[in-house]
């Protein structure tokens, strides 16, 4: 198995399945830019991670690409409570 395969496997393992908004934990982020680079619609996810703010952009596809690619476990989907009682 090559290093690339290993990295791919590592990434697959992190692929998130839940739907919600992408939420960062700023303290883990090293601003490497991988998340922004791989976002298919060019959302600056890294900026959200710096600010510790969830990606609340309406056009986010919730595709999970940024979450799966981040090598540091900074990002995760957090469920959005649509119906607050």
């Amino acid at each position: 198995m090559t290093l690339r395969d290993l990295l791919q496997r590592d990434r697959d393992r992190r692929t998130a399945l839940v739907t919600g908004q992408v939420t960062p934990e700023a303290g883990r982020c090293v601003q490497c830019g991988i998340c922004t680079y791989y976002c298919p619609i060019n959302i600056d996810v890294r900026r959200h991670a710096w600010l510790g703010q969830p990606v609340q952009e309406s056009h986010c596809l919730t595709c999970g690409e940024c979450i799966a690619r981040c090598p540091r476990g900074v990002l995760r989907f957090e469920r959005i409570e649509l119906f607050v009682p």
Partner: peptide
């Protein structure tokens, strides 16, 4: 990003990022 240099070396990100 200094830690990002490692990913630049492996080709996972491009320099500009």
């Amino acid at each position: 990003s200094r830690p990002g240099l490692a990913y630049y070396l492996t080709g996972e990100i491009q320099r500009g990022h």
